[in-house]
Design a protein around this nucleic acid. Sequence first.
DNA 1: TTGAAAATATTGAATATTCAACAATTGAAG
DNA 2: CTTCAATTGTTGAATATTCAATATTTTCAA
Lengths: 166, 166
Amino acid sequence: MQQRLPVIRSFGPIRSLTPVAKPSKENSPITEHLAYLLAQANREINRQLETRLSKEGVPVEQWRILKVLSDGNGHSMGELADAVLLNHPTLTKMIDRMVSDALVYRVQDPKDRRKVLMFVSDHGKALSRRLNSLAVSQEEHIVESYGDKSTNELKRLLESLIGTAN
Amino acid sequence: MQQRLPVIRSFGPIRSLTPVAKPSKENSPITEHLAYLLAQANREINRQLETRLSKEGVPVEQWRILKVLSDGNGHSMGELADAVLLNHPTLTKMIDRMVSDALVYRVQDPKDRRKVLMFVSDHGKALSRRLNSLAVSQEEHIVESYGDKSTNELKRLLESLIGTAN
DNA sequence: TTGAAAATATTGAATATTCAACAATTGAAG
DNA sequence: CTTCAATTGTTGAATATTCAATATTTTCAA
């Protein structure tokens, strides 16, 4: 006669009393918030880029401005402000400085005289090329330590986040 | 006699003269740079969070400070500055304001009298809870439109980027 | 133990950013 | 056409951030 095996009534603690379906987030550390991780990563990468560009004595925002204007087309202030992630008065004042440095110049838009079209000077173009090579070398450095796959995947996810956020 | 087939000398354009292995990056638009994508995404998400927190009239940085201090332990100014992504003088001045608002208070560290330990008040704790629920609801909103999988994958990649960047 | 160097936080001046108001131009309704 | 609202860019004042210098305390080597 086959021996009765003991009935197993439980495999462990009663799970319904230790809720597992609700990770709750309420008390999660700040380092788990997307907003915080983005701020931290941005800060770090921006610092690195800033360090590179300091070789030319130029802030990151001016690199962005020069890069956008380097397509040779005129860009209005509003358009430019959006593109380089600055609000209007800040951009106006930064452009004032860049005009003083003869990197860019203003032209009133003949089609709409409220607008100002910004253009990059030859001097600005030359600087832009040097800055761009510094920026590219930074990105290559990131790819080296962080990996090509991760970098591309991260870019893809960021683009998609930006897309859904608007 | 078998007919001679013409000798095929080329299958198309000579590839080595139209380099295909070098995406070059040199002239890529700014929107393809990791540094730019991070800045853009951070700006957008931060804006959203700022809007939520404005219900309590509190800037994002104060939410971070309150959240870090809400573990109940004392945190030195230096430690706190690192944690909340502010440099020291900026933190000192923001803490001054928060002390005026009775959200936090300073205690000199008895073990090392160079240090100041920051603590959150009961009032600050209550505010922190309200802020946190606003922040959590924002993150839930992101997860809704962006997807749970993407959000988690993005967080993972950001953490890893931050890890390798240091 | 003493004295110099390092670590920690704050301050004040210089700089930068933001907010609100403004001026100029265009668009559009009546 | 005229007028009023919307768009675009700039300005000045208020606010915030950053840099360099300072004060205090601790660390550590001689």
